[in-house]
């Protein structure tokens, strides 16, 4: 996968201080094309389907919103905290619109209903970037969606 003009422009927007204070790339110094390609390979290796993952995350975001800003258990499997902070974020990809800062924090519940350690953190924008561009953010980014964590937290073992 090569860095085309769109990817170059998007990567420039992802730097810290442009759209968000921290940016989208963390400490990852790979180019955007490489990050996306590696994550596509990793998702395939883990047998994770982008569309299925995206839909599961949409469902959790929707059901978590019922907590009205407080954490809520969903389907007795997850503890989901959906909260919104002031403002919106534009997509680093030009022309994709703006997204409300709706953060969704997902933790798996154990058999006793207690939350386990791994956390999946995403917002409307990160979900859009996952679905449209297969971009899971750079390593070290707060909103990085590590494919193995996606698999563990969403429980996609099938």
């Amino acid at each position: 996968m090569k860095m085309n003009e769109d990817l170059k422009k998007a990567q420039a927007q992802m730097k810290s201080g442009v759209i968000t204070v921290e940016g989208f790339l963390g400490y990852d110094d790979r180019d955007l094309a490489t990050i996306i390609q590696h994550d596509e390979e990793e998702m395939a290796r883990l047998n994770l389907d982008w569309e299925v993952v995206g839909q599961a995350m949409h469902d959790l975001l929707k059901k978590g919103s019922d907590g009205l800003g407080e954490p809520i258990s969903v389907d007795k499997k997850w503890l989901v905290h959906v909260d919104e902070t002031r403002g919106t974020l534009p997509s680093p990809w030009a022309g994709e619109g703006i997204f409300h800062k709706v953060n969704c924090e997902v933790r798996r519940l154990d058999k006793e209903g207690k939350p386990e350690g791994k956390i999946l953190l995403f917002n409307e924008l990160s979900l859009n970037m996952l679905e449209k561009h297969h971009f899971l953010q750079g390593r070290g980014s707060h909103f990085r969606l590590e494919p193995s964590d996606v698999k563990t937290v969403l429980g996609m073992w099938g």
Partner: peptide, 11 residues
């Protein structure tokens, strides 16, 4: 301003 002048809060 809630976003520090980043154009993301509209305040």
């Amino acid at each position: 301003s809630a976003c520090g002048g980043r154009g993301s809060c509209g305040a």
